[in-house]
Design a protein around this nucleic acid. Structure first.
Length: 580
DNA sequence: GCCGTTTTCGGCCCGACTGTTTTCAGTCG
């Protein structure tokens, strides 16, 4: 009935409600309640209509009677009276002003009431005319900051997110440089990078150093080549903007307080709020500096994160799932799953060589795989039709098999190289090698590179042909998304994942940082429908074999365990899982 | 608005930094 309404739609709505209530000056706890529900809804992959029909809306973390009723009203009527009333008081348009830094609820209310400003354009105009500086809570500096920020937004330099892989590289550069400063004991990325979100909004770096060493660290940080501008700088906290417009925050703490600091700085914010509530219930107060006994005022200093969680009566929570949903509740009763770990991965199931578009020989790729402790690898050069990637004719494919046979003899079982291919699914859904060739491969990986813009029904049909094909074992980078290049394909994933589950076709979690496909959300969705997965690097060069960590992290963010991922199995057991 | 092995009512995270203040409000994370 109301096709466009789903969990994401509701999350967006509740976020908007939170902003409007803020401007209205409502109780901050009520506002937080809406924010919390919005976050839960973003994680929710069960069908919202089904939850409603089964009376299970209140199973969503943070949803109580009032919000359950509001969700019901929307699902039934497509409307929400509460929202209509709210927006008749506070114009909906004001929400966009929230995207301008320095513009919080108080200032938005001020410009709206005093100057009738309800859009970013009007705000810019007023700032140019010097009309903002005289409002209470404003001044010439704030006015200038707002003007600069609006300009940055218009040039798309602000509110941009960066792929995890880029953040990772930069964080290694920064921590590498800072750890060479005198007195630095430890350094680590924190924030969304440590939680391994597929994109990051800013880069958070934490350094443990003696107080007297802080000056040198801050200097080294602000003088990094890639720094464009120092945004703010205090004794323990410094923020800069890099030349590529990524913002980077540095915090420096005493080594003895590393545990609480790392916990705090890793977030997420919602996770911290809930964690600190647990502390209060135990008559403790948690900050980035210590756990404090409220009764005696005594500080309990934590050098490790494990201590923080232990003092609060729960097991340590992996950063990837610190999103403020149900992880704290489970940790309190020691009920967290054992998430899949990098070390669980036994084989890499998508790797390219110089036969197609890879830059290294099979031997070189294999030697690196062995070094990484893998016990098997699947060579998946492109099939003949993919000209841009120098796809293999059947004849060249057979040559490759002979080389693989020879290499396997050499490696004497220490590493087993499997024969595979990344077979193109053509626009009509047929595969790029005939069945008799596919049948001779150890593992068949199917993927779609072209015509991703087909209409939804045709594309879904094409995917279905691929995942239901009796000789296809794995669907590679299913949605085809490429950060900064294209969104994932628009297909009916429920139908495709259902088919994959029933045909025992595995879904790839492509670990390459330009892809991370499936995304966390799609992994959750597919997992709920009974799919199993593989994590593969899609390596085209030696260093890319190290990308496995990125894929494993997405699996962890989706709460997957080793048993959900087939290439955690030793070779024999893995092969036994393949459909025949 | 949510939530509960100390509560169904009375709580609800905590601190850094800046700018506008003259002791603190606003924003941010």
């Amino acid at each position: 009935m109301h096709e466009e309404i789903d969990a994401n739609f509701l999350a967006d709505l509740f976020n908007r409600i939170a902003i409007l209530l803020e401007i209205k000056g409502e109780d901050r706890f009520k506002i937080n309640a809406y924010r919390r529900v919005a976050e839960s809804l973003e994680k929710e992959t069960r069908d919202i209509f089904e939850l409603y029909r089964e009376g299970k809306l209140m199973e969503i973390p943070g949803v109580g009677k009032a919000i359950a009723q509001k969700i019901s009203e929307i699902l039934e009527s497509g409307k929400l009276e509460f929202y209509q009333r709210l927006t008749s008081e506070i114009p909906e348009k004001l929400i966009y002003l929230r995207e301008v830094p320095e513009m919080g609820p108080k200032r938005i209310k001020a410009v709206w009431e005093k100057l009738g400003i309800d859009s970013v354009d009007k705000l810019e105009q007023a700032a140019r005319q010097g009309k903002l500086r005289d409002l209470p809570g404003f001044g010439p500096k704030v006015e200038q900051k707002i003007l600069d920020a609006i300009l940055a937004i218009k040039e798309r330099r602000l509110n941009r997110r960066f792929p995890l892989g880029e953040g990772w590289k930069l964080s290694e550069l920064v921590t590498g440089r800072l750890s060479r400063c005198n007195g630095v004991v430890m350094s680590s990325p924190a924030g969304s990078l440590r939680r391994m979100k597929d994109t990051i909004g800013d880069l958070d770096i934490l350094v443990a150093a003696k107080t007297e060493a802080a000056d040198e660290v801050i200097r080294a940080f602000t003088e990094l080549d890639m720094v464009e501008e120092v945004m703010l700088s205090g004794p323990t906290k410094t923020s800069v903007r890099f030349k590529d417009d990524l913002q980077c925050d540095l915090r420096i703490v005493e080594p003895s307080r590393w545990g609480t600091a790392l916990q705090y700085f890793t977030g997420s914010q919602q996770h911290n709020v809930l964690l600190r509530e647990v502390a209060l219930k135990n008559n403790l107060s948690l900050s980035e500096y210590a756990v404090t006994d409220k009764a005696s005022g005594r500080e309990i200093v934590c050098a490790s994160e494990g201590e923080v969680y232990r003092i609060l009566g729960m097991s340590w929570i992996p950063p990837e799932i610190r999103e403020g949903t149900i992880e704290i509740k489970l940790a309190l009763k020691d009920g967290l799953p054992r998430l899949v770990e990098l070390g669980d991965i036994k084989g890499d199931l998508q790797m390219h060589s110089t036969y197609s578009d890879g830059r290294r020989s099979i031997r070189e790729m294999a030697e690196k795989a062995l070094l990484l402790g893998r016990s098997y690898m699947l060579v998946t050069d492109h099939s003949q039709g993919l000209g841009v990637a120098r796809g293999l004719s059947i004849e060249r494919l057979r040559n490759q098999w002979r080389e693989i046979d020879k290499l396997n003899e050499e490696f004497e079982g220490k590493l087993v190289i499997l024969k595979g291919a990344e077979v193109e699914v053509k626009a009509d859904g047929t595969l790029d090698y005939p069945d008799d060739v596919l049948g001779q491969l150890d593992v068949v990986v199917a993927s779609i590179h072209s015509s991703l813009r087909q209409d939804k029904d045709r594309l879904t049909e094409r995917y279905l042909k691929a995942v239901t094909h009796p000789l296809v074992h794995i669907l590679a980078h299913p949605t085809g998304r490429l950060f900064g290049v294209r969104e994932g394909a628009n297909a009916d994933w429920d139908i495709i994942f259902n088919a994959a589950a029933s045909c025992k076709t595995f879904l790839e979690i492509n670990a390459h940082p330009s892809r991370l496909d499936l995304s966390e959300r799609h992994i959750r969705q597919a997992h709920a429908l009974g799919c199993r997965f593989v994590v593969s690097t899609d390596a085209h060069d030696l260093h890319e074999e190290d990308y496995m960590i990125f894929g494993v992290s997405q699996a962890r963010r989706a709460w997957l365990e080793a048993r959900d991922i087939v290439n955690t199995l030793p070779l024999k057991e893995f092969m036994a899982q393949l459909k025949r």
